[in-house]
Design a protein around this nucleic acid. Sequence first.
RNA 1: GGAGAAAUGGCAGAGCGGUCGAAUGCGGCAGUCUUGAAAACUGUUGAGGGUCACACCUCCGGGGGUUCGAAUCCCUCUUUCUCCGCCA
Length: 422
Amino acid sequence: MLQISAIRNQKEAFIKALAKRNLDATEMIEAALALDEKRRATQTELDAIKAESNSLSREIGGLFKSNQQQKANVLKEKTSQLKEASKTLDQVLNDTIEDLSTLLYKIPNVPNALVPVGTSETDNEEVYREGEIPILGAHAVPHWELAKKYDIIDFELGNKITGAGFPVYKGKGARLQRALISYFLDKNTAAGYTEYQLPLLVNEASGFGTGQLPDKEGQMYFVGEDNLYLIPTAEVPATNIYRDSLLNESDLPIKLTGYTPCFRREAGSYGAHVRGLNRLHQFDKVEILRIEHPDKSYDALNEMVEHVKGILQELKLPYRILRLCGGDLGFTSALTYDFEVYSTAQERWLEISSVSNFETFQANRLKLRYKNSEGKNELAHTLNGSSLALPRVLAGILENYQTENGIDIPEVLIPYTGFKSI
RNA sequence: GGAGAAAUGGCAGAGCGGUCGAAUGCGGCAGUCUUGAAAACUGUUGAGGGUCACACCUCCGGGGGUUCGAAUCCCUCUUUCUCCGCCA
């Protein structure tokens, strides 16, 4: 969520920047500022009443000690009146704070200057492309057919056990998946990211901290019995490690990585483009996350992009990088780069990573701060990205590496799989 | 799952219902001393709101209550510890 103090200082700049999201925020911003004004006025008034009441209480204490009950009783009545007044004001204050928060939750992050103008994914700006798109023979088929042909992923079995979107990986398919996870984690730890194993269920406060709640709860599976949510991404438990914390400047940057399964309800998205591994309810992902000094977060973002590039180069997959336009940019992000791998048999690009800088947007909600060199507390910047999402990388490998007689394994993975082909 | 105990500042640990945002120790920071360091001594050291700056307000696990006044009393939730049971 945006900081009201920042909005106060540069209202026009916020409205102008948000316009890039094709959003006229004027009304919301004005309403927020009005509520902020009201909040502070109410707070001041309430403080004054409390101050008076406090000092009277102290006086009463003194009077009791010196056995002046009568005088004390007179003052008691006065404080009772003050109490009534403060109760009303307290209610007003709480309502105002709540209204303000509700409103602020609805305002998306301010896009970075680099974010291109646009309304949909077709307006995203391709900033980089690398890798040869292989020319496949007539034998080439999409990955779901390969999965069946070589008996490495069983979609029907998943239907039986759970339902659509929960595939079963077997034999070399399972091993290849595990190889990818290990390979990604090794690359990440080699780049200085500390490996974490995180809870797959989170409480309400965590869901709230990273912004899945209150608005997007429909995306998550919910365990009502214990009031817990299955994580839609490792970002949720990983970022919440640092909820409500005050770091030293020297602690920064914090770099961590974690592998987790991810669970997404994906309600309402069915059709041909969700076939096979393209869109699942449960999938594996390795995530990288950074907490940075505000001055360094964009360097960090570029570093993360370079890191993911390095992995795709090693896997020798054709990919491109998009800078998301205002219309496609996620609610909490200031700047996002999407990585897409080319699925040769499907003849389309598949998103396999999304690397974003959230600046202070998440940190503000999380109360994630650090003490700067002047001893003042400031919000840190948070960033995260996938490195990488497994199913679509797997789809890319299966399709791009298929031959007439089987599927080759990318060279860097062979030490992890223990076999050279499927 | 059952029974009991506890939750206080970076950590440890006091705290009678009334100048308690909180003793004391350790740690951190600054200074004195020292060629330098250590030791010793002195000072300083939580967060949020608010203000030009003060004042002032809030916070002793979370929420609610009693009271003129709550870290202190009551209710409730959460977490931790001990014992019993169950269990990969």
